[in-house]
Design a protein around this nucleic acid. Structure first.
Lengths: 144, 144
DNA sequence: GCACCATCGTTTGTACACCAACAAGTTCCG
DNA sequence: CGGAACTTGTTGGTGTACAAACGATGGTGC
């Protein structure tokens, strides 16, 4: 190995791959979230937030609105339900569906947490200047 | 509700939060990865790639190099070991450590997959122009 | 009507991801 | 030397995330 740079034949650099950096950025964000809002996971908060906005939704519809798999949203709703934050009842019009809605306590918690949640976006973007943040969000949106 | 825009008192918009967009971007990336490299998960590939670069590492050291928890890297190594892609032996100098190294087959697979892996970064960034990609990667790096 | 197909929710299985607690080994320091 | 502090790997538990298969229901077209 005469050279400084190893990387045998391929020259593949893990650190330069989007996926790897994306994953580390998310790790940092999740850690910020957990520190700011220990009451709920980011996923649970997203589901509760969307539900408070929609007032009411079927389980799968809520999953689509929050970019969650049917199997994933089920677990999330279950945990929110056990904690008394959302309520579930059969849909009269369509017997396949269950209608999910936030409870009064769920709304209260969301209202209390929303300011903190908005702050988390700022904290996550803290390493960037204001114009950089807008640029970053615009580009990220294109990738999502 | 006289207005079009609901969002009761808070005006919280899930779609504008970094965490949510970040998560969707990652989802898209993971789906591209799985389509391009069905043989391994992104995490497994990252571990194998780093191991091929380092030639050899302790389990925890490899975890740090790939931004994985000790508990996480254990499972990843286990699965790679079962598939004959990496090898594990006790470290003579430090009896706590296990030395992990890629097998010949692990190296072969990595060499075969590396070009595809590099392409995944391009595919993920496809919605962006060349200058946008550099800008995005630079900003993302700051957040990671 | 009725077969066909889509949708809804559920279950099972695999794979991260992280926390907390633990035992065994190593290092540091007085 | 000898004990405190740290590191290494392991385990158990919780929580996403997705694929695949399933039963039940709903809609569609003939």
């Amino acid at each position: 190995m005469p050279q400084d740079s190893l990387a045998p034949t391929t020259g593949y650099r893990l650190e330069e791959q989007v996926g790897f950096v994306l994953r580390r950025a998310q790790q940092r964000h999740l850690s910020i979230f957990a520190a700011s809002i220990p009451e709920l996971t980011p996923t649970q908060f997203a589901a509760l937030a969307k539900l408070c906005e929609l007032e009411q939704a079927s389980q799968n519809a809520l999953g689509r609105a929050t970019a969650m798999d049917a199997a994933t949203i089920k677990g999330v709703i279950d945990r929110l339900r056990v904690r008394g934050l959302v309520e579930v009842r059969p849909d009269a019009a369509d017997q396949r569906r269950v209608a999910v809605a936030p409870t009064a306590e769920g709304r209260r918690l969301f209202d209390a947490l929303a300011p903190r949640a908005r702050r988390i976006t700022d904290d996550t973007l803290a390493p960037l200047t204001a114009p950089e943040r807008h640029m970053f969000l615009a580009l990220l949106e294109k990738l999502a």
